[in-house]
Each structure stands twice: as structure tokens, then as C-alpha cells.
């Protein structure tokens, strides 16, 4: 059986919001080290890989490996019923056909309980292979989200060009073109505001802004984002 409690439901709310546009149904693979999810989007062009470590929960208990088939649209709707600061407990019994969620307000005067029916999801064993990337860019996640949103007004694709001292995001469409150049900054007060470019060799690659905008939804989860690029390898965000 699985029993896991998060101090703030907002963590799972943000995760589900970031994933739900890409993944319809997928397994939460639960074991004693945590809860993992690997799933390609329905168009089979992007992989979502998520790991919620057991240490992030208190308590966390998982007696044996179980795969919980989740419909993310349903889970997203249920998570909307949770207050951001609510305690969240998720439970699944042996051979469970439901995932139980309990939201408890901070002063314990409101307790909501929901059961979501589990599904059988055919699972491929997928992951992101270890690769030495030509360029690794670290930047504030809000800045990345804004760049993707701004350049969407011009084109459905963006070309990311990483050189020694700058990263250029370029969008070119029927009605015009636009570009945003981001330069590394070292001496910033907040680590999240840092921009770094680590380069083995310059790269210039094009990607679908639709997907980058989906990925950027995860920017509420962390202050900074890392983009790893190489020729002939998927962009890792």
C-alpha cells in the first residue's frame, strides 16, 4: 500500500498543471524511493519525466512497487479542490482500483476526500539517456516562459542559438520576425536570477513553441530552468 503526505497541496497542484496538457493517462510508479512518472505526450514528440522523492513527503510509506494508472484531466480537476496550503495525503491500498486524496486545511476545520478511479495504462520503460550536451543554458524560469510566450506572436517555431557569450531565441513567421538575446550575468544577488552558458561547441536548433510553452508551465515549480542542447538529440529542459 501507498500512503504519502505532502505538507502543501500546492506542490502537486503545480506539478499536475505542468503535466496535464502533455499527458492524458500515465502511471505513477511508486516504490520505497518515491513516485515516478515517465510518459510521452499523445503526439509522441515529447517525454515527461518526473520524480517525487520520498524525502519530499512526510510520512512516506510504500510497501511494494505499484503502478497507479492516472487520468491527469481528472486529477487536475480534483487538485483544484485543494487549498494551496492544505495538507495533502494520497493513499492507495493493495490491488487498489482507486487513488484516495485527502485535503486538510491548516487548522484542520475542513477535510475533503476524493477517490479517483485508477486505469490500466500500457507502460513503456522510457527515460532521458545520459548525454554530453554541446550547450547548457541556465536561466530564470520566468524569463524562459516569457521568451516562449513573446515569440509565439511571430511563429510556431523558435530557433535557439547558443554561442560563447549569449543565447539568442529567434522566431520568424509570415508577418515578421523577432529575437530575444540573453547574456550571462555572474554577479547577481539571487541564484535563481543567474544566467550561465556552458558551451562545448556552438549550437543552433529549432523547436516547436507549442511544446516549449507547455514545458514552461513548469516554471512555477522552480526559479531556474536548464536547457541542454546538442545536434540530433532532443532538447532537454
Amino acid at each position: 500500500m501507498l500512503e504519502a503526505r505532502l505538507p502543501s497541496a500546492v506542490t502537486l497542484k503545480k506539478i499536475i498543471d505542468a503535466v496535464k496538457e502533455l499527458v492524458q493517462d500515465a502511471n505513477f510508479d511508486c516504490n520505497d524511493s518515491g513516485i515516478a512518472l515517465q510518459a510521452m505526450d499523445s503526439s509522441h514528440v515529447a517525454l515527461v519525466a518526473l520524480l517525487m522523492r520520498a524525502e519530499g513527503f512526510d510520512p512516506y510509506r510504500c510497501d511494494r512497487n505499484i503502478a497507479l494508472g492516472i487520468n491527469f484531466a481528472t486529477l487536475a480537476k480534483v487538485m483544484k479542490c485543494a487549498g494551496n496550503d492544505d495538507n495533502l495525503t494520497i493513499k492507495a491500498g493493495e490491488d487498489a482500483d482507486v487513488l484516495s486524496l485527502m485535503f486538510e486545511s491548516t487548522n484542520s476545520d475542513r477535510i475533503s476526500e476524493f477517490d479517483i478511479k485508477l486505469m490500466d495504462v500500457d507502460a513503456d520503460h522510457l527515460g532521458i539517456p545520459e548525454t554530453d550536451y554541446s550547450a547548457t543554458i541556465k536561466m530564470p524560469s520566468a524569463e524562459f516562459q516569457r521568451i516562449c510566450r513573446d515569440l509565439s506572436v511571430m511563429s510556431e517555431t523558435v530557433t535557439i542559438e547558443a554561442v560563447k557569450d549569449a543565447v539568442k531565441f529567434i522566431a520568424s513567421g509570415d508577418t515578421g520576425s523577432g529575437s530575444i538575446t540573453v547574456k550571462p550575468n555572474q554577479a547577481v544577488d539571487k541564484k535563481d536570477m543567474e544566467v550561465t552558458v556552458t558551451l562545448q561547441e556552438p549550437v543552433k536548433l529549432a523547436f516547436s513553441l507549442k511544446y516549449l510553452n507547455h514545458f514552461a508551465k513548469a516554471s512555477t515549480l522552480a526559479g531556474s530552468v536548464t536547457l541542454s542542447l546538442s545536434d540530433d538529440v532532443p532538447l532537454m529542459i
Binding site: 510521452m40 520503460h125 522510457l126 527515460g127 532521458i128 532532443p234
Partner: peptide
Amino acid sequence: VCRQVWLTRYFETA
């Protein structure tokens, strides 16, 4: 479609 198959195989190698 070729790219989709290639991507799936790429992710399966992890």
C-alpha cells in the same frame, strides 16, 4: 512519423 519512432526508440535506450 519517422521522427516519432526515432524519439520513442531514443527514450527507450535510457
